[in-house]
Amino acid sequence: MAQKTVQLRVKRQDGPGARPRWEHFEVPHAPGKNVISCLIDIARKPVTLEGRETTPVQWDCACLEEVCGACTMLVNGKPQQSCSSLVDNLEQPIELAPLTKFPVVRDLVVDRQKMFKNLERFRAWVPIDGTYPMGEGPLLSAEDQQVRYNRSRCMTCACCMEVCPQINGRSDFVGPAVIGQVEFFNLHPSGPEEMGKRLEEMMGTGGIHECGNAQNCVAACPKEIDLTDAIAEVGRQVTIFAVKKFLHSS
């Protein structure tokens, strides 16, 4: 019996701005094998299915268990982590391509720094006084903890950004992930001042008003974060904030 194999089509790009091309590979199959194991096999012997020598495919990865977010790519057209993409669950040839909403560095590696910049812009932190002993943190109900924990599992992987129709060349929408973080921090009992700053910013360029309510994000999130709930809640907070602001200014 012929040895079982896995076939892959990979979108290659030599560097930023280079013209993309497709290459076709075949690697040995093994039970439980994931897409990353296939990419390592290609690196061992970078030869295409047609027998042409090429360079190893480049990709990002770290944890290999879907908690770091690094290895997100398009697998058969869907944004997901390549570590938890098991080949036995995928139609072949498995098509691998870089995320489309971020600049390509090389092959499957993209630059997602703008997501981290969003966290800066929306002050995604608790403004602690300092790291010196100041006693216990605030009490929190087990129910609120469950909501905060759900939001806090966001690994900045960009699946929600990739599927959002509002993130495109014509809009500055900041995307669902950071809105979930705004809700996460607004839920922390650390003072309304920071919350006001976050909401003020949410009313600015690319803010929450750009959301088109397509709801693709919540379906794409690998960590089952209730992104649409978060967007609804932050939307409500923004409305109240805007009304209060209007009343104060008049």
Binding site: V126, L139, A142, Q145, R148
Partner: peptide, 21 residues
């Protein structure tokens, strides 16, 4: 113990008892 307090102040969503500790 003080390290746990600090992390809690930073907003780590540690699991809670029914009373909120």
């Amino acid at each position: 113990p003080q390290i746990i307090d600090l992390l809690s102040r930073m907003g780590v969503p540690f699991n809670r008892t029914p009373e909120g500790f």
